[in-house]
Amino acid sequence: ARQKVLNGFPGYIGHQIDITISAPGAVAEVGHIVLGRNHILGRIMDGAEVGHVSHSRKEFDQFGDELLIKRGSTRKVTVPLRVPTVQAPRVMDLVAEVDGLVTAFYGSSEYAPNYGIEGLGFVDDHTQSLDAAGDSIFTLVLKTIK
């Protein structure tokens, strides 16, 4: 699988989690294994975007010829969330808590709970328009690390 999100494991002090990864006859690869608290921020709306951010550079040599310097890339993820307005302070506090920290994030739907937008990165920007009538739209922009 390209990605897999598993959650709901008990996190009691003194317990141990053993992880076994195998691929008989093939090579098993794992990008990240992250353990921590899981917070639901809101319901993902249509229009979530995943963008490619290239860190390659175009420079010029002493004769004016272009040189492309190949570098890695990351992703920029923009997620519009529907959040009950009464939950706005809780969501803003959770985002402020992880500001400046590398955080695992994922978004999935009830129809495909183990697949969706995922990454390991940091919060780049967030805005929340407050609608006193019920639900507010919270736009979260995340950038992955390599």
Rank of each mutant, 00 (worst) to 15 (best):
D65F: 10
S22P: 00
A48Y: 04
T85D: 12
I40G: 10
V77F: 00
P24Q: 13
V27S: 13
G107E: 07
V77S: 02
E49I: 04
I145Y: 03
E97C: 01
A133E: 13
Y111W: 07
E97M: 08
I137H: 04
L67N: 13
I17C: 07
A88L: 03
Y106T: 01
V141I: 10
V53T: 15
H52C: 07
A28I: 02
K76G: 08
M45R: 15
K143L: 10
I40N: 12
H55N: 14
A23R: 08
E66Y: 11
S22Q: 03
D18I: 06
Q62F: 12
G36Y: 05
Q3I: 01
A28S: 11
G25Y: 11
V91F: 01
I19T: 07
V91K: 00
R71Y: 09
G14Q: 09
T139C: 04
I19D: 00
R37C: 02
V102A: 09
A26P: 01
H15S: 15
T78W: 03
G134E: 10
T20M: 07
R2V: 02
A132F: 07
A112M: 01
V98G: 03
G8I: 01
G72P: 02
V27C: 00
E97S: 08
L35Y: 06
G8L: 04
G134H: 10
A48F: 04
E66Q: 15
D18H: 14
V91L: 01
L67F: 01
F122H: 05
K143F: 07
N114Q: 14
T20E: 12
N7C: 02
V98P: 03
R57N: 15
V30I: 07
A28H: 03
G42H: 05
I21F: 05
V34Q: 01
S56T: 05
I17K: 03
V5K: 02
V77I: 10
G25H: 11
S73R: 13
I21G: 03
D65R: 14
V98K: 05
E59G: 08
P80W: 06
V123T: 10
H15N: 15
T127R: 13
V34P: 01
G107C: 14
P80Y: 08
G47I: 06
A96Y: 13
Y111Q: 14
A104I: 03
A88T: 07
G25T: 08
